[in-house]
Amino acid sequence: MDILNALVLFANYVFVPATAYGAQLALGALGVTLIFGILRFANFAHGELMSFGTMAVILATWALQDMGVSLGPLPTALLALPFGIAVTVVFALLTDRYVFRFYRVKKSDPIIYAIASVGVMFVMAGLIRVIIGPDDQSFADGARFIITARDFKELTGLEEGLAIRVTQVITIIVALAVMAVLFWFLQRTRSGKAMRAYSDNEDLALLSGIDPDKVVRMAWIITAILATIAGTLYGLDKTYKPFIFQQILLPIFAAAILGGIGQPVGAILGGFVVAYSEVTITYAYKKFLAYLGPEGWAPEGLMQFLSTDYKFAVSFIILVAVLLVRPTGIIRGKVI
């Protein structure tokens, strides 16, 4: 029996990475849920929007690095973030202007928007691959760890180490800050309330004199900001590869639907639930159980519920379970 080591092991391989991942998913799901709440369609291009934003940040980071600018222990990418956000906002507004607005004026079926968003997704995917290429790009610099596994072991005298990376802490801090600002905006400001009103009851919002174009514009701006930050944090924490942003779409959708689509709080909850499920279900508990069992004993096999290959199957299973059991999501979402 060695509970302390077991807990540290669990924290190191499950809790810390899953929390960072959850924050990234939550930011992504917030964007999806916002677009859904305001424009009422599932935006398949959201993954590529994240990718696009991250790409802009990476390019700016490289430029800054070339100029010799750095933030010391913090990644330079944080400094490049505003630039990436600006570019992505402009891009999102342009797609709205030249693609989605047409269908809005025509009052098209939501599914038409969704198909158009798939078209946008492909144009963006192509652009991104032409501009930055399909390969891995690493752009994290600065200090790697806040505490390394070895330091932790020396500090505590435990067998297991707990490594905390700078990027993980940054992810969580930035995500919390962004969420706080977003909720302040939605709950306290006039524009934020107008967005909520529009999402709640479009006709009445129009009657109240809320300008739909303004609300839609605002939704895209916020979504682009969230997408760029989410993508950059993901890229810093793991790696930037255009293809990943196609795969991450599924967990993000799962998080948004699980939370109750159109519900910002739900999107955050959903992001963390999906992330924790993904990591806990695909983690091999062998060593963890060995610490908890009697001295010298270890369970046979890896003690894994699902092999890591099926990471995103977890989000799909969650998605299906939600659709079967409670299609409105944890916090009753808009429409089913």
Partner: peptide, 10 residues
């Protein structure tokens, strides 16, 4: 309709 799309993607 969009749920079908997302589920089929999954």
């Amino acid at each position: 309709a969009d749920y079908l799309a997302i589920a089929t993607l999954g």
